[in-house]
Every structure is written in structure tokens, then in C-alpha cells.
């Protein structure tokens, strides 16, 4: 099956001269949940905004459902629903009016039953006549989701959907996302939380400084991302690592007082038991130990290094 979204050599340089995207290539398959993972400022919103028609690309192309987003913008945009990162809503409109408005704006015939269902799915039905400015932040986000779904899109973009969102809405949202996927809707979400990408996505793309560093099935990426570090505080400082411990690729730190072992926490065998046995065989003793997850930043650095 051809990809539902195809992005090729997409670059964006803002008028300030800042290059936010550097020749991005990315294909999204029909019906998948794709997570775009990257730190703040990586270019996630820029990428989404270009696909949705909010920002003009500097060069490169995008097709949605085979429709070029410039030449055939109507057909492309009809397929897309967008929940933006910022809580931007009309203040004085009622919930019902603003969601119906979105449906009409996207060229769909009025369908009160569908709008009703959407509002009910998002627990907004009781608030249908409320003015948006009277709603809480979480409720406003629900309204934005309802607006994005009002025209029955085939592709849904969720830009940092859980930033500042309470547990209940998070749960509802993931339930909704899974339900949408059942009906064949393709979902692309951005996040800077690894856990979130892990929880939701089928496939994950990592973006950093405007470049897509890696795109992989979740399971494969998780094993790469899931590196942990075991630090051993030694009784006696070592001047060098004994030859018998060579295979563990240990690092000596703090002037020989610490031994650091990096391992894959998701792997079948972490190698810790064997390491500890071999350590005592080599006569190395330790006072204390800690393990820690590598941070996203470190992982990015690692990924970039792996790639080059």
C-alpha cells in the first residue's frame, strides 16, 4: 500500500534565517500510530504545520493520500484533522457552535448526530451550550480535539497532546486514539516524552535539530533507547580495567573510583549477573551501586553518533 503521507526533502528556513527543517524524508503508512519524538525546538510543530498548510515549506514536497498539499490542497486538507499544541479557541462561541463550524469549514454537510456523538465521546455533551472561555484548560483541549474530528478526517495530527493534561484526559485521549485507529484513521502525534511514544505508537521517528535521525518500529527503537547505566563505587581505586572484564566495555571514571557499565534494559539478558561474578573473580569489590536511565538528550547524542 502506498504511504498515506509522503514527505520528501522537506526544508524550512524561517524569515529570521533559522533553519528549522533540514531535508526531511518521511513516509507514514495508512492506519498506523506514528510518534514524532524530539526535544523542544526540534522542528516537530514546524513539520506538522507544513503538512497542514499553516506554514509554507522552503523546499521539498508533501503528499497526503496521494494529493500534493499545494497543487491539490483541498483534497489533501479534507483528509486532515489537526489538534494544535497551543490552546487556541474562540472564547465567546459555544462548544456546539465551534465544533459545527469546523465541520462546515472543512466542507462537510451538516450532521448534528455526528457532532453529538463526537461531543459525547469526549465528555463534552454536558458543556455543549457553554461558552468556551468558561471551560477549564483540559476541557478546552477536548474542544480542540472535537473540532479536529468534526469533519471525519482520515489523518489526525496531535501536537504534544498531553502537555499539561490531567490523568483522566490522558486516558480518555488514548482510548479515543485507539478507537480511531480501529476505524482506519492514521494518527501522528508529537511528544518529547519517551514513555508517551512507547505507550502509544506503532512506529517512532526521532527528530533533532530539524533532522529525522531514525525511524523505526517501536520495539526496535525501544531497545536502542532503553539503555541503562550501572555505576559501581569501588572500595579501592583501579588504575586500569582488568583484561578479564574486557567484553563488558566498562568505563573507568572519577579517577578510577567508579566503574560504569551500559546495558540494554529491555534485552533478554542484561549481563549484570555475569558481570558481578566476573568482578569478584577479578578481585574488584565495591561499596555501592546505582542504575540510571540515559536521558533523552544522551540518547539523541548516541543516535546521531551511531548514524554518522
Amino acid at each position: 500500500m502506498p504511504p498515506i503521507i509522503s514527505i520528501s526533502q522537506l526544508s524550512k528556513t524561517y524569515s529570521s534565517g533559522f533553519q528549522a527543517l533540514k531535508s526531511v524524508d518521511l513516509d507514514i503508512s495508512q492506519g498506523e500510530i506514528f510518534a514524532l519524538l524530539g526535544p523542544n525546538g526540534a522542528g516537530k510543530t514546524t513539520l506538522i504545520s507544513i503538512v497542514c498548510g499553516i506554514v509554507n515549506a522552503t523546499s521539498g514536497g508533501v503528499t497526503v493520500g496521494g494529493h500534493d498539499i499545494r497543487r491539490d490542497f483541498r483534497a489533501a486538507r479534507e483528509m486532515i484533522g489537526l489538534v494544535p499544541q497551543e490552546l487556541t479557541t474562540d472564547s465567546f462561541e459555544s462548544v456546539w457552535a465551534t465544533v459545527s463550524f469546523s465541520r462546515g469549514l472543512f466542507g462537510r454537510r451538516r450532521d448534528d448526530a455526528f457532532v453529538e456523538k463526537t461531543l459525547k465521546d469526549l465528555s463534552l455533551w454536558d458543556k455543549r451550550d457553554a461558552r468556551i472561555l468558561t471551560l477549564s484548560g483540559g476541557m478546552k483541549r477536548r474542544v480542540l480535539i472535537a473540532k479536529a474530528l468534526a469533519h471525519e478526517p482520515r489523518v489526525l495530527f496531535l501536537d504534544e497532546p498531553t502537555a499539561g493534561v490531567d490523568v483522566e484526559l490522558r486516558r480518555d485521549m488514548w482510548q479515543l486514539v485507539r478507537g480511531l485507529r480501529e476505524t482506519g484513521v492514521t494518527i501522528i502525534l508529537t511528544t518529547h516524552y519517551i514513555e508517551e511514544a512507547e505507550e502509544m505508537a506503532d512506529r517512532i521517528g526521532v527528530i533533532s535539530k530539524g533532522e529525522i535521525i531514525v525511524v523505526e518500529q517501536k520495539a526496535e527503537l525501544m531497545s536502542k533507547l532503553g539503555r541503562k547505566r550501572l555505576t559501581l563505587n569501588l572500595q579501592e581505586p583501579l588504575s586500569e580495567i582488568p583484561d578479564s572484564l574486557e567484553p563488558y566495555r566498562l568505563e573507568l571514571k572519577s579517577g578510577g573510583c567508579e566503574l560504569v557499565y551500559t546495558y540494554d534494559a529491555q534485552g533478554q539478558r542484561t549481563g549484570i549477573t555475569r558481570l558481578l561474578t566476573d568482578l569478584s573473580a577479578a578481585g574488584v569489590t565495591f561499596r555501592d551501586l546505582q542504575t540510571e536511565q540515559s536521558s533523552l538528550e544522551e540518547i539523541f547524542v548516541g543516535l546521531v553518533k551511531d548514524k554518522r
Partner: peptide, 14 residues
């Protein structure tokens, strides 16, 4: 000003 223009820009309208 309010940012709701995103919807207009992303809609299939000329």
C-alpha cells in the same frame, strides 16, 4: 491575534 487562524489556514478553503 487569538491564534485560531490555524484552523482557517489548515482548512480546504481558498
Amino acid at each position: 491575534f487569538a491564534g485560531t487562524i490555524y484552523e482557517l489556514l489548515s482548512a480546504p478553503v481558498s
